[in-house]
Design a protein around this nucleic acid. Structure first.
Length: 900
RNA sequence: GGACGAUUAGCUCAGCUGGUUAGAGCACUUCUCUUACAAAGAAGGGGUCACUGGUUCGAAUCCAGUAUCGUCCACCA
């Protein structure tokens, strides 16, 4: 005996219980699936690595979205018989984590990291890490994520540490990791370099000074930072600028506020002739473009500002002053000498540190870099950059939506060497040692033997260096890769099938993963990149903690259930576009889960009475054929959509079928149509397959209902429905019949409208009839012979539909619609009596006119030899098809006109 | 400054390679406690598809331009 099933679906604690059962079954691990013969031995692999969330994060809707999408893909492929693997893990997020701990420390003890010292501070970080690390992954379980926990990884655990060190040493051996002096973004307060994306811009008003270095200097320059001009070694002008043509290449010396300068005039295309005087003072040490010019022109590099943001020694009275103080005194000095020609207010962008808001100083500094342009033998004499661009151009890696390929390529083409060292304490240590009192550097996985004389590099690695290796470092690299051969997980599951992430880290992460995988194992890390949009609040704002507008997915799960949350993230969004999610939306999908629950409840209770599971397909009504036919196409289209990452479309179609076709119509009809055996059989089959189709979207409720259906196996490991079942067993269901039932629906709806308009109460019997003259009408005890004039029905009707009767949900169809003739009839060929003949004639004539022009156009096109030769074959075929269709249609309309 | 995207019903959005009368959910109006479901059922109202041109037999869909909004990148010395 089955227990009574409650009327309202309450997810509550059931979800956790179901998840526990799944996890204990071990089926999240594909090896176990193979061992238990749930999938075949030679099943194809399907793998995804979870983008590792930061350990500082709590689960937010952005994560939920990625989890929902990837879980959908994994569950779908698992049911399709793939060896589906989904690897979980977390990211140590070097800078972000250090900041969080720093802030926490300051708040709780008032101490900075410098007060504690590196050792003690790191101890604090690890303490924090242990508390938070598992939290977010536990929350992933709440989302129902079928991750293989036996393979869990962390970007800073031992295996990953070894992998990172090996990678660094290998790249160094190949000469693409090098140490060099470059202009970096330096935060004088944090004492660290900042990556380009760690800089924020503030609009501000600044004074633009136009002046000469000294009285006898031939050109004036403009700048907002006169103090840096102490380090100028050149003046750059545009080569096209006629004003300065004659002095290009000449050298001048100047006495700039008491400091001697040797200035060469150089030409550079990047100089804007219209800005200021059109001449730019080149300060190689404190500007990135100037540094480039200096390299190209072999200019001397004079550092002016030190790492504390102060003027260095050797600049007379200015030395020791902060940049700001120095600016004031330089300006004062210039004024005194009467050299300032202009002083104007302009608006510009000030770069500031994203953490503390301090103005960033561009400084030359010794850092570790990855060379992206260096050609390598192991890459077929191509550079990392070239290979990574190639992968996208040759469609080895495909982007969804496609437009992101362009963004990726644009970014890659402008890529400069990647600075991978960060002056922070938390993160991967750099496997490099500096010899005391010497410039000698040793790079290796182990420290040099003579430990006393060597000090390990104090910097840490950029967090993207380790997460860039994520697809293969989680699969046992480097152990699983020897002599160019993959083994173990790496052989089985790499490259992964898809990387799914927000488009905002396309450049930061995706491009680095591609380069690192190409370098380490010579193959791409993933075949597809699916970029999902950002999750916004219901007003279209980014969710953020500070604004307090974020919806906590855990609250929503508590309130509406995981399935409703998943649906609200999967439906109503298109790839690469942002999704707005508010509580209301989640509530709506909760209503749907309840609907599904009640549909199942109805069928399960019916089945109890009938208890007939034999295949019964002898007496099929029009409705039976209709629903099975629709089911077949539903299965096909759902699979196709998921394969193309169109989750929203797939979900919407399922939603519509479940609610508005299966529940609203078929279930109602099943209550009174008399072929009980067939009805029970079909209801049961459709319900089971619907649950399977829905499972990747809403795993909990479907698994739950499944357990009420007397099934021993988990729904999770059932195989995906097959459309053939419906096509083969209900072969009578062809297109024509389906259209007919759709027409019946339209008739019934219109009849109901008339009933409503005429206030015919419920409970009264109402007949709908279509008589021999093809008039449609309804009659009740009160009213007789209303004629339906809705063109809607008329156009959908076919000839010869018999008599149907119904009462509404309450109503019933008593008779069944009889067979119709079908021959690709046009929509005009009906119910002449109700149609305005003149209007019809005019519109048909117009259509024929249009069609004839169209046809002649097509014929012309097809007789054009150039077109037939040059256009792809499919296109020509398509055009021919179009022509045929148009010709048939035109014939039909002509016939119709004759009838009129 | 460059690139990309968006503009469709009161709101949030679908509409795939041009083709019947442009769709959904919510909201709104009217009716119905009916034994799967009131978190429901039935019916209905509401749209010059941002604007202007062009291509086409035919444009929400393709092309060009304009306007507004958004995102990313670059950065002004």
């Amino acid at each position: 005996m089955k227990k009574e099933i409650p009327k309202i679906y309450k997810p509550g604690s059931i979800e956790e219980k179901i998840y526990d059962k799944w996890e204990k079954s071990g089926y999240f691990n594909p090896d176990k699936l193979a061992n238990d013969k749930i999938i075949s031995e030679n099943a194809k692999p399907y793998s995804i690595v979870l983008p590792p969330p930061n350990i500082t994060d709590k689960l937010h809707l952005g994560h939920s979205s990625v989890l929902a999408i990837e879980d959908l893909l994994i569950r779908f492929h698992r049911m399709k018989g793939f060896r589906a693997l989904w690897i979980p893990g977390t990211d140590h997020a070097a800078i972000a984590t250090q900041n969080v701990v720093e802030k926490k420390l300051l708040k709780e003890t008032g101490k900075s990291r410098h007060d504690l010292g590196k050792k003690k501070f790191l101890k604090e970080v690890w303490k924090f890490l242990r508390e938070t690390q598992t939290v977010i992954l536990k929350q992933a379980r709440k989302m129902g994520a079928s991750l293989d926990w036996s393979r869990e990884a962390f970007t800073l655990d031992e295996p990953r540490k070894k992998a990172v060190e090996k990678m660094f040493v290998d790249m160094h051996k190949e000469g693409i990791i090098y140490r060099g002096e470059r202009i970096v973004n330096w935060c004088p307060r944090c004492h660290s370099t900042l990556a380009d994306d760690e800089i924020e811009y503030e609009k501000q008003k600044a004074k633009l000074y136009t002046f000469k270095y000294s009285k006898d200097f031939p050109v004036s320059i403009s700048t907002t930072r006169p103090e840096t001009k102490l380090g100028d070694t050149a003046v750059a002008v545009n080569p096209k600028d006629k004003r300065y043509k004659d002095i290009i290449g000449k050298k001048f010396s100047a006495d700039f506020c008491g400091i001697g300068l040797n200035i060469r005039i150089i030409a550079d295309n990047e100089v804007d002739m219209d800005f200021g005087t059109g001449a730019l003072g080149v300060t190689p040490a404190h500007s990135i473009t100037d540094w480039r010019m200096a390299e190209e022109n072999n200019l001397e590099i004079k550092k002016v500002i030190d790492e504390n943001g102060k003027i260095r020694k050797g600049f007379g009275k200015f030395s020791g002053k902060t940049a700001e103080e120095a600016r004031k005194s330089v300006v004062a000095e210039l004024k005194k000498q009467g050299l300032i020609e202009k002083e104007e207010e302009i608006e510009n962008n000030l770069s500031v540190c994203y953490r503390c808001g301090t103005a960033v100083e561009p400084l030359p500094s010794k850092q570790w870099f990855v060379a992206v342009d260096k050609k390598l033998e192991r890459l077929g004499n191509k550079s990392l950059k070239e290979k990574a661009i190639e992968a996208a151009q040759e469609k080895e890696i495909k982007f969804f939506p496609e437009r992101f390929e362009k963004r990726y390529l644009d970014w890659m083409e402008n890529l400069h060497d990647w600075c991978i060292s960060r002056q922070i304490w938390f993160g991967h240590s750099i496997p490099a040692w500096h010899k005391k009192d010497s410039d000698e550097v040793y790079v290796g996985e182990k420290a040099p033997e003579d430990k006393e004389n060597w000090i390990q590099d104090s910097d840490s690695l950029d967090t993207w260096f380790s997460s860039g290796m994520w697809t293969f470092s989680t699969m046992g690299w480097p152990e699983t890769f020897t002599n160019g051969k993959k083994s173990g997980d790496l052989a089985e599951y790499h490259p992964t099938d898809v990387l799914n992430t927000g488009y905002e880290i396309l450049t930061l992460w995706v491009s680095r993963m591609i380069m690192m995988s190409l370098f380490a194992i010579g193959e791409i890390p993933f075949r597809h990149v699916y970029l999902n949009g950002m999750v916004l609040d219901e007003y279209g704002k980014k969710m953020s903690k500070s604004k307090g507008n974020g919806i906590d997915p855990l609250d929503m799960i508590e309130k509406y259930g995981t399935d409703a949350v998943r649906l609200s993230l999967l439906i109503g969004s298109t790839p690469g576009n942002d999704v707005r999610v508010g509580e209301e939306k989640i509530g709506n999908f909760r209503n749907f889960t309840n609907k599904l629950w009640n549909i199942s409840r109805f069928i399960i209770s019916k089945e109890k009475e009938a208890d007939n599971k034999e295949q019964e397909t002898e007496n099929l009504t029009l409705a039976d054929k209709w629903i099975t036919r629709k089911m077949a196409s539903l299965i096909k289209k759902t699979s196709e959509d998921i394969g193309e990452y169109k989750f929203s479309q797939a979900g919407e179609r399922l939603y519509d079928f479940t609610w508005h076709e299966f529940a609203d119509w078929y279930l109602e009809i099943s209550k009174f149509e008399e072929n009980k055996k067939e009805k029970d059989y079909i209801l049961n089959a459709v319900l089971k397959d619907l649950l399977k189709l829905w499972h990747p979207f809403i795993p909990f409720i479907t698994e739950n209902i499944w357990s009420h259906l007397d099934n021993k196996k988990f729904l999770m490991v059932e195989s995906y429905p097959d459309e053939k079942f419906y096509r083969e067993n209900f072969a009578a269901a062809n297109d024509t019949d389906m259209v007919d039932f759709d027409a019946v629906i339209e008739i019934i709806k219109s009849a109901r409208a008339i009933r409503n308009e005429n206030k015919i109460g419920s409970g009264k019997r109402m007949d709908i009839f279509i008589d021999a003259e093809k008039t449609i009408g309804i009659s009740t005890d009160d009213i007789k012979g209303f004629i339906l004039s809705q063109e809607k029905i008329i156009k959908n009707l076919r000839t010869g539909i018999g008599k149907i009767k119904f009462l509404s949900r309450g109503e019933r169809i008593e008779g069944v619609v009889s067979k119709t003739t079908s021959n690709g009839i046009t929509v005009y060929a009906r119910l002449k009596e109700l149609v305005d003949t003149e209007k019809e004639r005019a519109s048909a004539e117009n259509e024929i006119n249009n069609l004839e022009k169209y046809i002649s156009g097509l014929e012309k096109k097809l007789s054009d030899k150039n077109f037939v030769k040059k256009a792809p074959k499919e296109v020509v075929e398509q055009e021919k098809e179009k022509l045929k269709k148009a010709q048939i249609k035109s014939e039909e309309i002509k016939k119709y006109l004759e009838q009129l």
